[in-house]
Amino acid sequence: MSETEKAEVSRGLENVYIKATSLTYIDGERGILRYRGYDINDLANNATYEEVVHLMLYGELPNSEQLKRVKDVLNSSYEVPEDVLRVMEVLPKDSEPVALMEAGLAALATHEKEFKWKERDREKALEIIGKVSTITANVYRVKQGLTPRVPSPGESYAKSFLEATFSKSFTSQESSMMDKFLVLYADHEVPASTTAALVTASTLSDMYSCMVSAITALKGPLHGGAMEAAFRQFKEIGDPSKVDDWFERTIVKGGNRLMGFGHRVYRTYDPRGKIFKSMAEVAAQGEARKYLEIAEKLETLGVKHFESKKIYPNTDFYAGILMYGLGFPDFMFTPLFALSRTLGWLAHVVEYVDEQHRLIRPRALYVGPGKREFVPLNQRK
């Protein structure tokens, strides 16, 4: 039997391990998510995003001096070259939001001249996290026809981002919810976007190019677009009184997918989803409250219908309602995901290059015809 005949293809690379990691642990059966050993609930409720940045990049929660250094580097890294924002500004206003992020990050890559892995990769990661805040804020501003704006150094990364995006002040409670959003979406092992970043890093390309690879993979509705898809589902329903009819017609009889339900890894309620639900209950006012009521009714029906298959709400189900409550239109949901996941992407590529570097070069199982004789053009029928 030939090697080709013995080989097996793992479609979607399901259950294929491409790296060892000390970053994120997931127990999909019990609904456990930990960063560097710390439970996601403890981190979301007690640590700031800047503390989690230090944890993921340097391995430990910071002391006061280390935390100050992280904040100082982030605060000093918001500025980007003028041409970067100009590239975003001159693109069509109807450009896809994530495509605007791609353009901004690719423009930043043109300024990357002499980066060398292992010399200052963690410091470079901090700088990139600062600049991605600027890029993300200006996705919103470009789409809304507003002048570009750079976040101002401030007490927290989350608050600086919010105020640069909307040109207004935010309460400590609102800033805290944005902060928790960043913590909750920061990493989730090696989904498609992180894998794309790792493939690029394995070639020893620069970090901005790794980011571009990651964000292009995030763009699809089966990955980063799921939060937006779940929220648009609530908008489609329109009113809590219509949930039962919509569910019966669209999900039960129509056989369509219930967006925001189910996960490749979790076979129980996504632990992040529970935290997002509690925050959405606080942030949802006005129209957002209506969407929350729709989501809660839909959750009840969905759990009853899918529980036997171990399909439950995931992190995307309520996250969009929280962001909408903070003022973000739904077109910003995937860029916001990218803003948070920047930390995970960078932490993974640093870990891979520093500790386990090897060019990622998988094989494809050939299933085509055997050797064929070439026929000249004038002899072909």
Rank of each mutant, 00 (worst) to 15 (best):
R141A: 00
E163T: 10
S241D: 10
W246D: 04
S209L: 13
M227V: 13
A217R: 05
A229G: 04
S156R: 06
F166L: 04
K235A: 04
P151A: 00
G224C: 07
S133F: 07
S167L: 14
Y266P: 12
E174H: 08
W246M: 00
F181K: 03
G238E: 02
F166R: 03
K242E: 14
Y157V: 07
G254N: 11
D245H: 11
L162E: 03
M207L: 15
E248Q: 14
T171A: 05
M207T: 02
E228R: 13
L146Y: 10
E189K: 06
K235N: 07
S202E: 01
D239T: 08
D244Q: 14
V142C: 10
G254W: 04
G238C: 05
A229F: 05
F247M: 09
G220C: 06
F231K: 00
K180R: 15
A201H: 12
A214G: 15
L184T: 04
V142D: 02
V212E: 01
I128S: 01
E119V: 14
F166C: 02
R249P: 05
S241Q: 12
M207Q: 14
T134I: 07
D187P: 09
D239P: 12
Q144G: 00
E119H: 04
S209Y: 07
V212I: 14
A164V: 10
Y208M: 13
K253H: 14
P153T: 00
R149V: 09
V252K: 13
V265A: 03
Q173L: 13
F261L: 11
L162R: 01
P240G: 05
Q173E: 15
A229H: 05
T216A: 14
E119M: 05
T203E: 01
A137H: 07
R249E: 15
G255Q: 04
R141F: 09
V265F: 02
P221R: 03
F181P: 04
M178I: 08
T136N: 11
V265M: 08
M177S: 00
V199C: 13
M177L: 15
S160I: 09
I135R: 00
D244A: 14
F231C: 11
L198I: 13
D206C: 07
I237R: 01
G154H: 02
Y185M: 14
L162C: 07
L218H: 08
V132A: 00
D245Y: 14
I237V: 15
S202D: 04
R141V: 11
E123K: 08
R264V: 12
K219P: 06
Y266M: 05
A192S: 13
L126R: 05
V132G: 03
